[in-house]
Design a protein around this nucleic acid. Structure first.
Lengths: 195, 195
DNA sequence: CATTTAACTGAACAGGCGTTCATTTGAAAA
DNA sequence: TTTTCAAATGAACGCCTGTTCAGTTAAATG
């Protein structure tokens, strides 16, 4: 046998993904060229094609990984118990997980229109799985007479928009600590569902 | 005197802006070429430069107009009275004004990173004026002992994120009428400030 | 009708784009 | 030390990019 498969690949592969993530979040998918990504990695443009079929696959891979990691982390942190505890857990999880992943969040919301229709459908499917988790919590809370809200679906979308919006302005060096942010959002989400 | 200044210009100018708005909202600023915009207008690419200094100015113009029209409309719809009435008015205004302007909203949130630093600063300044309007209402409500919330600034940003997020999923032909949407969001915003 | 000139064309510019591929490199395997 | 081949190079492909500008067109003015 010759040299182990992917001895360099194991280093360059992640570097390609990291460079693409950073640059696309910064300038947008269409504005970043393969040559610019290659430069960031320290390699010629042609070498990128050892790690991705084409530019579109690179974007899809970033977005798909983001969503699958989100769902896996959510599953690992699953909480059972009463709807109030599950709602608080969802809020805390969303903030803790999204906050250190600003670039991924940005790309996942901004670059949907640059996906091919098939790739777009897949990402939307994964996003819906996440939304449904929250919707189920809200519905259970309503059914148990604990939450008071007018429309479960709209409230779900409103909460996710509110939580995700934080990524656009939060800065680690800012006025508010992560703990404080978390507490504020837990409070606001609770109010939103009428607790 | 020769022919009136801008006899065709008055027709083509708005067509250029409309085409740019539609295409940039659809595909993103960097992904849309001047030739593609010209094609949509029914003109050669060179002719666009009778209506914009360059591509960057076209984007800035769209975003700047959007923000200035928003602020002008807000001023025209200004309400005085108690904080609760002003809060409800803000919610209703935001929804009614943003909902039929999906493309502008999309561009104004997505294409900030494609502005030059100077243009970016100007748009952010205008956005802040709008945010400050809501923040003032919240602060007045808190001072009057009517609202119960933990952090005025964060609540302001959360409300705006929640309201603006609606643009990403609302469809006129969907399950909910505009009146219903408005009522739902007025209710949610009220809950968020502890009414 | 003759003149004026705003509006537009169409070609050109220099450079960048995504992608392919024959060739070179160099470290691990034998 | 020799062999092997994954990994990377670098040039090339055809096409597209934003922008400029000399030249053409045609409608309104005098």
């Amino acid at each position: 046998m010759a040299r182990k498969t992917g001895s360099h690949s194991e280093i360059t592969g992640p570097k390609v993904r990291a460079a693409a993530l950073k640059l696309i979040a910064q300038h947008g998918f269409a504005a970043v060229s393969m040559r610019r990504i290659a430069e960031e990695v320290g390699v010629q443009a042609g070498a990128l094609y050892n790690y991705t079929r084409d530019k579109q696959a690179l974007l899809f891979d970033l977005m798909c990984s983001h969503m699958k990691e989100l769902l896996a982390a959510r599953e690992a942190a699953a909480v059972s118990g009463d709807p109030v505890a599950r709602l608080d857990a969802f809020t805390r999880f969303h903030i803790r997980w999204h906050l250190p992943r600003g670039d991924q969040v940005f790309i996942s919301y901004m670059e949907l229109r640059n996906l091919t229709p098939a790739n777009f459908a897949e990402i939307e499917r994964l996003r819906k799985v996440y939304e449904d988790e929250l919707e189920t919590v809200l519905q259970d809370g309503v059914d148990a007479g604990l939450f008071h809200l007018d429309d479960t679906k709209v409230t779900t979308l409103a909460i996710i928009a509110m939580l995700t919006g934080m990524s656009t302005w939060y800065r680690a060096e800012g006025r508010l600590s992560l703990d404080r942010i978390e507490a504020l959002y837990v409070g606001m989400v609770r109010r939103l569902v009428g607790i």
